[in-house]
Design a protein around this nucleic acid. Sequence first.
DNA 1: TTCTAACTTCGACGAATATCGAAATAGATG
DNA 2: CATCTATTTCGATATTCGTCGAAGTTAGAA
Lengths: 119, 119
Amino acid sequence: MKQLDHPNVNEIRLEAVLAALADPVRLSIVAALSDQSEHSAGAFDCDIASSTLSHHLKVLREAGVTSHRKEGTRCFVSLRPELDQVFPGLLTLVLEFAPKDRARECAERLLPGGPNRAK
Amino acid sequence: MKQLDHPNVNEIRLEAVLAALADPVRLSIVAALSDQSEHSAGAFDCDIASSTLSHHLKVLREAGVTSHRKEGTRCFVSLRPELDQVFPGLLTLVLEFAPKDRARECAERLLPGGPNRAK
DNA sequence: TTCTAACTTCGACGAATATCGAAATAGATG
DNA sequence: CATCTATTTCGATATTCGTCGAAGTTAGAA
């Protein structure tokens, strides 16, 4: 069973993590994993080609955000616990803001200027 | 005095903020502003063309990270306080990790595998 | 008004990224 | 073995990004 390469903890870079999280597809993947669960790659319901999904999973893995375990033909993905040792609280904070941001974005689209528009 | 456009608070997007911070030049700019000071655009000592600096400042401004105030021929830049209302603690956390990450990166370059290399 | 300083904008370039479909791979299953 | 399934890799394309130098803008100085 050939496993995929993961960066050493010392190789995890802040900018790579931020860049990995700065994409809607990847953020939704990470959000889906945030309950500490393990998803097989096919189990994420993003409306993208499987090759594109594979690309995004690779970006997350190489940034040190996710851990990938191959089992049979499947690849189980989960959040890397080491990430929270390297950047404690970062992922939690981003994942806390993500749904609120989506709600704000939606509200802004329906009601430009928002409920508390300044000036 | 024509001022530059800033996004409304409701228009500040998490992904845009993360993307803005996921660049070494911009992260160094933000770090320089982290003492709540105001810098004129020319006062950042990045070794890049002034047009490139202007580009990065535009990205930060449009992401809602910085506030730009034109005075005479100069442009004074500071962190937008509203950012911490929209995403409380995010910038602080990233700015706390940034120097540690640089140190880790440097250590990793000198001593591949790091002092606590696993396995 | 002309000159200068401090930016910004524009146009170009190469590098990186997001995307897809097709082909390759690897393991399970018949 | 042949085949099916899940995923990765490859090749192509379109877009975005970081960078520069040149040209444009704006406001103060001479």
